[in-house]
C-alpha cells in the first residue's frame, strides 16, 4: 500500500507515442509537426510555424520538458552579454509559459508540461513555444552578432 502511495507519478505518455501522434497532427492554425526521436532519447520536434529552431523534448518523472536552444554566448555582440541578460530578465514576465535559461554556454527557451496533460494542450504549448522563440529572438536581434 505504501508503495502505491508513493508511486503517484505515473508516466502517462512516452516520447515514442508523442512522436507518432505529433507527426500525424495538424492544428487548427495549420501548424504541422516533424518529430524525430534522437539516439540520446530526446525527441526533436520541428514545428511548421518555425522550422529553424527545433524544440527538444525530454521526460522526467513528473514533467515533459520542452527546450529550444536559441544561441551561444559567443554569438552575442561583444560587451553586450550583461545587457542581454538584463533584457531577458525583463522580458521574462511577458512570456510566462516559456522561460529563458542558460545551459552551459547556450541560451535556451524552455517550458515544462505536467505528464498527463491532454495531447491537444501539449500541441498548443509547442506551437506557442515555437512562436515565442521567434518573438524573443526578434526582440533581442540587435544584441546578436
Amino acid at each position: 500500500m505504501a508503495a502505491n502511495m508513493t508511486r503517484e507519478y505515473s508516466m502517462t505518455i512516452t516520447l515514442e507515442e508523442l512522436a507518432f501522434r505529433l507527426n500525424d497532427h495538424t492544428t487548427d492554425e495549420g501548424t504541422s509537426f516533424d518529430a524525430l526521436l534522437l539516439e540520446n532519447g530526446v525527441l526533436e520536434v520541428v514545428c511548421s510555424n518555425n522550422d529553424e529552431f527545433p524544440i527538444h523534448l525530454a521526460l522526467t518523472e513528473t514533467q515533459l520538458l520542452a527546450v529550444t536552444p536559441l544561441f551561444n554566448v559567443a554569438e552575442v555582440v561583444a560587451g553586450e552579454v550583461d545587457n542581454l541578460n538584463k533584457m531577458l530578465l525583463q522580458l521574462a514576465p511577458a512570456v510566462p509559459l516559456s522561460a529563458f535559461g542558460l545551459q552551459d554556454d547556450t541560451y535556451i527557451l524552455f517550458g515544462a508540461i505536467a505528464l498527463g496533460t491532454h495531447f491537444e494542450i501539449i500541441v498548443h504549448e509547442l506551437e506557442i513555444q515555437a512562436e515565442n522563440t521567434i518573438d524573443v529572438l526578434d526582440a533581442i536581434q540587435s544584441l546578436l552578432a
Binding site: E44, H56, L57, A58, L59, T62, P69, T106
Partner: peptide, 19 residues
C-alpha cells in the same frame, strides 16, 4: 529535489543534442 536534479540533467541532454 530529485525531480530538480533530473530536470537539470534532461535539459542538459536536450540542449547538448542541439548544440
Amino acid at each position: 529535489d530529485l525531480e530538480k536534479v533530473k530536470t537539470i540533467k534532461e535539459v542538459q541532454k536536450a540542449t547538448t543534442s542541439i548544440s
